[in-house]
């Protein structure tokens, strides 16, 4: 039986009915058409589906949509503003930290959470801060450079 849930996504309030077995990732992608959040494994191994839930980055493929009832969710679509793209997104573009781009939304959400909590992360903290986000294209080097360029 479907359940009505209320949640805030990128500062917009949503009320929607979901089956209990629907994941947050599928709710975002297929019901709400927020397809910026990607799925690369569906089992919490790749991090492509990373969203920030109540301040912490999580694998949205391992969160039930019903569990997100009452939550604050941030997705990659919420970062850009009327003023343009977010500085993190800009740094990823400028430093060449994006190749195929499939891990990028998740990688950027982990980066946002990392920098929200620690504006001046060390190299090790940067590595740890994206350790759940697999990238097969870049070898991470330019991703590190992009994040390093954002240190305060």
């Amino acid at each position: 039986m479907k359940k009505i849930i209320n949640l805030t996504i990128n500062q917009l309030a949503y009320e929607t009915a979901v089956e209990p077995n629907k994941t947050l990732a599928d709710l975002l992608r297929y019901d709400l058409k927020l397809t910026g959040t990607k799925k690369g494994c569906d089992t919490g191994d790749c991090g492509a589906c990373t969203v920030i839930m109540n301040g912490d980055p999580v694998n949205s493929c391992l969160v039930l949509a019903v569990q997100a009832n009452g939550s604050q969710i941030e997705t990659v679509e919420g970062l850009s503003t009327d003023e343009g793209i977010h500085p993190i997104q800009n740094a990823f573009v400028e430093k060449g930290a994006i190749q195929c781009g499939y891990c990028t939304p998740g990688m950027i959400m982990s980066t946002k959470s990392l920098l929200d909590k620690n504006s001046n992360p060390s190299e090790q903290e940067i590595r740890e801060g994206i350790s759940g986000n697999l990238c097969r294209c870049t070898g991470y080097t330019k991703i590190f450079e992009a994040i390093e360029s954002l240190r305060s």
Binding site: R29, L34, T35, G36, T37, K38, K39, T75, V76, E77, L79, S80, I85, Q89, N90, F92, V93, E94, G96, I98, G101, Y102, T104, P105, I108
Partner: peptide
């Protein structure tokens, strides 16, 4: 040069469309 790639602004913002999107 080191010109920015033409596809990456869309990829960074979640606008780039992959087949399952």
């Amino acid at each position: 040069t080191r010109a920015n790639r033409i596809d990456t602004p869309d990829k960074a913002t979640g606008r780039a469309v992959f087949v399952d999107d």
